[in-house]
Simulated assay, not measured.
Amino acid sequence: MNVMREEDIVTGGSMSVEEATDRAARLMDQYGHLQGVSLIEPMVHEEFNGRITMTSSFGTEAAALLALVAEVDRDLPVIFLDTRKLFGETHTYREKLVDHLGLTNIKIMRPDEEKLEAEDPNGMLFASDVAKCCYLRKVEPLQRALEGYDAWLTGRKRFHGGERDALPVIEPAGSRIKINPLAGYKREDIEDIFEHRALPRHPLEAEGFLSIGCMPCTERVDPNTTDVRAGRWAGQDKTECGIHYII
């Protein structure tokens, strides 16, 4: 279970919380039966034209959503959180995927250097307060990156389990709306996207990493495990970094 702190929550869209909640309900009624490109297209070009972005970790499954988005709009802003603790292979993979898919608008967000110097001067905060480390390196930068947007696309899926078991396709997130085009996809559906579109794989996947985040908090797992995210914060009472608590 993750503890959500007051400072981990932010509003910031142009809608009020009530307006976002009502609009999400209306969108679910109209589009809730859709997924993949069929859902992305109206969200990007009709409902939130110019006011929608997406986030991507450029991890093992990230290419699936990126490929579908590229089919709809290669110029859609893609937010990438460079925590300064990522594997070098993730940066290399990002560059490869961007080139492969022809993406044109990658927004690389980094932690605030002054805050890092004050709160994590030796870069070891992850060892004593992992939640605070995630906040400084991921949550706060994403708060800044989302300014000016009313909606954002995520690659979350129900089969990842945990808090994602009942993930809706469209959900209110405070004063914004969150779209989850792959919510209902199965593991084999993601594999089909990779195979049919000849997408490159994250180089660390072959080394036993099924879900890839920051280097200190990511471990190899048994490739036969049903828990795709088992290698994230292994042994800790934590399953999410906190960015999906941003509302």
Rank of each mutant, 00 (worst) to 15 (best):
N105W: 12
D112C: 07
L204W: 04
E140H: 07
M124E: 15
N180T: 14
E46K: 04
V228W: 08
I52C: 06
A230I: 00
T218D: 05
A131E: 03
G184D: 14
Y93T: 06
T239L: 05
P121I: 01
T60Y: 01
M124A: 09
V44E: 01
R232G: 01
L142G: 15
F87W: 09
L153N: 08
E207C: 00
H33Q: 08
K85T: 10
F80L: 03
T55N: 05
V221Q: 07
V169I: 15
H196R: 15
T90Q: 07
M1E: 07
G174H: 02
T83C: 07
E163M: 11
R137I: 08
N224G: 00
E117S: 10
V139D: 03
I52F: 03
S128R: 11
E191S: 11
G13V: 08
P141D: 03
T60H: 02
H100G: 07
S57V: 01
R229I: 05
R164A: 04
N122K: 12
A70N: 15
Y93C: 02
R26W: 03
T154Q: 08
L66A: 13
I177W: 04
S175T: 15
Q143T: 13
N2G: 03
S57M: 06
M28L: 14
S211N: 03
I247Q: 04
E191K: 13
K132G: 08
K178W: 11
E18M: 10
A62R: 09
N49L: 05
I40H: 02
T55V: 09
C217W: 02
L182E: 01
H91R: 13
K96T: 13
I193A: 14
R51T: 06
D29A: 11
F80V: 06
F194V: 11
D227E: 13
R158E: 13
F58K: 07
C217S: 06
R229T: 01
F209G: 06
G242I: 01
Y135F: 07
M1I: 05
S175L: 10
H202N: 02
I243F: 03
M215W: 11
W152H: 10
T226Q: 00
L101Q: 12
I247G: 05
H45A: 09
E113V: 10
T239E: 06
I177N: 04
H202T: 04
L153Y: 12
Y31F: 14
V72F: 09
E163G: 15
D75P: 05
Y245I: 02
